[in-house]
Design a protein around this nucleic acid. Structure first.
Lengths: 100, 100
DNA sequence: ATGCTACTTGCGTTCTTGCGCAACTTGTGA
DNA sequence: TCACAAGTTGCGCAAGAACGCAAGTAGCAT
């Protein structure tokens, strides 16, 4: 049996890494992340850039947030999302260079 | 409508990148890739390192191969897999550093 | 040819994802 | 308070993914 309760174990680390990879594993989410490379954006803006509906975008952002890739900030009634770490852009570029 | 027939389009590139990310999006497959970092290995070896059944490992290797992350070489009746690109290890490390 | 070892494939089940649509929440301003 | 705009959440469905197990294929040795 594998121990996932110890966060420092190799296995637990791979589970987290895999979760991050799965969060990156959708073209729309990659588009969102690249788009956030230039700065924060609201849900509506992102939805129109990716050309999907707002609830759908909200779901994708939830996935990204759960993986720790983006953070949210509320201003009035609009919510702005931004990258939580510049290395995420690096990961996007590395992925596309591998996928070439 | 989005054109996926042009392999150079941004969208098609993201689709391929996302496919790579999904292939990375499983703890066992990450384990396989890290394990292949030290050199090629047979299906049976990989199955025992990851502690899963051979057919299951064969499936995971198919996923990795379809994403272009590993290549196979047959010698006698054993098949050896290896990383197709050293940057894949980089990607694994980047993922775990982001997931930390 | 027979048997053996090493993989791959097929099949059925269960779990997860992505999406659209409707309903709900929260904040703003008249 | 009422209406509106911006997001989030719930629900149902269709497609995809992971796994175990059984069956099939490929190469080698006797």
């Amino acid at each position: 049996m594998i121990d996932l309760t110890n966060p420092g174990s190799l296995e637990a680390e791979r589970v987290r890494s895999a979760a991050v990879a799965r969060a990156l594993g959708d073209p729309k989410r990659l588009c969102v992340l690249e788009s956030l490379g230039t700065g924060e954006a609201s849900v509506g803006e992102l939805a129109s850039r990716v050309s999907c509906q707002v609830p759908n975008m909200s779901q994708h952002l939830l996935v990204l947030r759960s993986a720790g890739l983006v953070t949210a900030r509320r201003d009035g009634n609009t919510v702005y999302y931004r990258l939580s770490d510049p290395r995420i852009l690096e990961a996007c570029h590395l992925l596309s260079s591998i996928a070439r």
